[in-house]
Design a binder for these strands. Structure first.
Lengths: 201, 201
DNA sequence: GTCTATACACAGATAGAC
DNA sequence: GTCTATCTGTGTATAGAC
């Protein structure tokens, strides 16, 4: 039966997402992706000019859902410290799922670390910057001094927690990251007074 | 001229180190490594039973030098807070070198994330555990409560800093990690009193 | 005009035979 | 140390079907 062009493209990206995320970028062939998507290679190359092109689209498609999930994990209630502890606690549970394999962006960067212009690198960079912006807004709203530094440090904790959990397959690294995040944002780091004490532990 | 067997093996591992670390594990072929080492593939397969075997040896060879460098960066003077700030400052400079491409162990884990038994995974895990043990000794010596949690959080900061610097190619993520490390180990985390105040910022 | 199906070019991969 | 077996990779070409 005839296909809708946009649907076909989405199916290819969906197939790529499953295979790339689980097995890695170099480890998965265009053939395997076309097969899983139920299209021929001819169709594949009709929609994407190369495998690298697909890699860029794969990561772009993960950007927004990933950040949405992060926002959901952190929630909107309580101090930044509360939100980050909650975030890392959710990360700890999510990482125990059978399909969890760390951060697709970081793994893409790891595979193409020496290719500065590659879509994997540029797309990952944009995604991480968007994550950091989300944290920066949160930290700034709470009135922290040196909000940029704190936001960067929180990004470091997130990526580091994901990496350590991936290597050891042990969720307690996420919990420890939550502990560090709380110590970072809950102790005398405020530029303004907070007489209601909402940031005191 | 005839070669010494152990020397040949070392040359192969040295060639693998240069190529694997700069380009990644899947991206480099056995041919390229044998070429760079100046041996034939026959010789290569005489010393290693497979590429995966070589990958394991490549990472094993990086274990000790990496940890020695970490110890050198941190130094032996001052509080844990001082050492970690110094460590991240050294990481910031080192990451600006032209050949720097993040952590080989983390990148190996990223490439083989779905292959639990692979030498890349098991070797990386052992290495990271050794790093953590070094930190744990340091933190324990200073008398911190919950030393295990702090050591894990410091590992999270190290791996996270390396990842973020790799993605953005911007050393200020390492500096921010140092800031977070100091807040983690210098504020009321001690189990015992420290009347000399050496941990007060 | 987008898809399927198949075949093909050509380079490169791992591994091993001679 | 060379040479080759066998497979797999990306990307293209040639068919025709809905």
């Amino acid at each position: 039966m005839p296909r809708d062009g946009l649907l076909t493209r989405k199916q290819i990206v969906a197939a790529a997402d499953e295979l790339f995320y689980s097995q890695g970028l170099h480890a998965v062939s265009v053939d395997a992706i076309a097969d899983k998507a139920g299209v021929t290679k001819k169709t594949f190359y009709n929609h994407f000019k190369s495998k690298d092109d697909l890699i860029g689209s794969y990561l772009e498609a993960r950007d927004r859902p990933t950040i949405d999930r992060f926002k959901e994990w952190a929630g909107n209630e309580g101090s930044v410290a509360d939100r980050m502890v909650r975030f890392f606690s959710k990360l700890a549970s999510a990482s125990q799922g059978p399909r969890w394999n760390g951060c697709g962006f970081m793994r893409a960067t790891a595979e193409f670390a020496n290719m500065q212009g590659h879509p994997a690198i540029t797309t990952a960079r944009v995604h991480k910057a968007r994550c950091e912006q989300w944290l920066l807004n949160m930290v700034t709203e709470e009135g922290h001094a040196d909000a940029e530094t704190i936001a960067r440090a929180l990004m470091v904790l997130i990526d580091g927690a994901v990496s350590q959990v991936l290597i050891h397959r042990d969720a307690k690294y996420a919990t420890s990251a939550g502990f560090a995040a709380r110590s970072l944002v809950s102790k005398g780091q405020l530029a303004s007074d907070t007489p209601d004490g909402k940031n005191q532990s």
